[in-house]
Design a protein around this nucleic acid. Structure first.
Lengths: 90, 90
DNA sequence: AAAATATTTAACCAAAAAGTTAAATGACTA
DNA sequence: TAGTCATTTAACTTTTTGGTTAAATATTTT
């Protein structure tokens, strides 16, 4: 975890799009997968990268696994960026 | 350019460290290179990635090429992150 | 219990990224 | 102008990343 894994996770456009989808509502792996032209296995790997970075959380509900956004870890990124911009973070 | 190349550029720890160095003061390629254990050629490539992303600017001064931070492009990243966090960006 | 559905994991492949050394370029210096 | 210093570019290698298909796992349905 930490800044490195967060930024790394954010550096792929598919993963960013997944996060944007999850900003609106929680979705199952299949629902997420449907919206992309890559295989379900590929999406599953993206999800596990996002999960390792703690950017998303999952909960199994029967046959489905639902994913939801955890935006809290973005705070660290924002702080780092602000620091670089020379802003006062009070 | 754009969000993708900015975040990609930020996703490498050496490049982030270079940006932090340049936050303090402008430095020549050699001065930057000195502080890392990789070759000068490798650092030169990192610099060109940062430059392509417009995160840094360079000016030749005689024998040296000086690099300086251009933090303005970070704004776009901040906005994207804020959006994801569901903040009102006024 | 067997079949079907949702999702992940394994094994593998191709393309991209990051490193190396050596050669090229640009500008100063003796 | 020949030599040296600073830096980049070229050619190449290794590692990482993102994709694929097939097999495994978990759960529900029939």
């Amino acid at each position: 975890m930490g800044l490195q894994s967060t930024i790394k996770a954010l550096s792929d456009p598919i993963r960013r799009e997944i996060l944007e989808m999850l900003k609106v509502t929680r979705l199952s792996a299949g629902e997420i997968s449907n919206r992309f032209s890559v295989s379900g296995a590929a999406i599953s790997k993206h999800l596990s990268i996002l999960k390792d970075a703690d950017l998303i959380r999952d909960t199994r509900e029967g046959k489905y696994i639902y994913y939801e956004l955890n935006a809290s870890v973005l705070e660290e990124v924002m702080l780092w960026l602000s620091g670089l911009k020379g802003e006062k973070n009070d």
